[in-house]
């Protein structure tokens, strides 16, 4: 068995044409170094199966400039969404943050939860510092 091309094998055969398809992330890194391809695949297929088409990449680890890089092929994504594919939540989040789709609710949720956490920490710090000042004045 030869390695299928990472960029996808294209739509072949009658079965795949009618099968439900999905845009999803496909993990391609190695241990402790995640890297994802954004691909169109038959929705039930295992991750080891050849994909139909690669639509982009996503590197979740920040680089030297503290950037997390995403590349997306919007033409093909438009085409595939126009032909009725669904997409997974992480992909929807990425597309939302890219400004292509409306921002996904989970992005909002995680954002406000992070804010909440930050505020709580700040309040805690403030409380500790006030307590320290009070102790020093006594």
């Amino acid at each position: 068995m030869l390695f299928p091309p990472a960029s996808g094998v294209g739509v072949t055969g009658g079965f795949i044409i009618k099968a439900p398809k999905v845009i999803r992330l496909l993990r391609k890194g190695c241990t402790n170094r995640p890297f994802y391809h954004i691909v169109v695949a038959v929705s039930g297929n295992h991750q080891s199966r050849p994909v139909i088409e690669q639509l982009g990449t996503y590197d979740p680890m920040p680089n030297e400039q503290n950037e997390r890089l995403v590349s997306l092929n919007f033409e093909r994504i438009s085409y595939w969404i126009g032909n009725g594919v669904t997409f997974s939540t992480p992909t929807a989040q990425l597309l939302g943050l890219a400004g292509y789709l409306p921002i996904h609710p989970t992005s909002y949720i995680s954002a406000w939860r992070n804010r909440q956490k930050l505020e709580e920490e700040k309040a805690k710090e403030l409380e500790i510092s006030e307590q320290k000042e009070a102790n020093a004045s006594q």
Partner: peptide, 20 residues
């Protein structure tokens, strides 16, 4: 809201690209 927005986006793209 998200689902509504997505529906309209999808409708637009289907009109533009759908083979059917």
């Amino acid at each position: 809201n998200y689902r509504n927005h997505l529906k309209s986006v999808r409708r637009y793209l289907i009109n533009k690209h759908s083979k059917i």
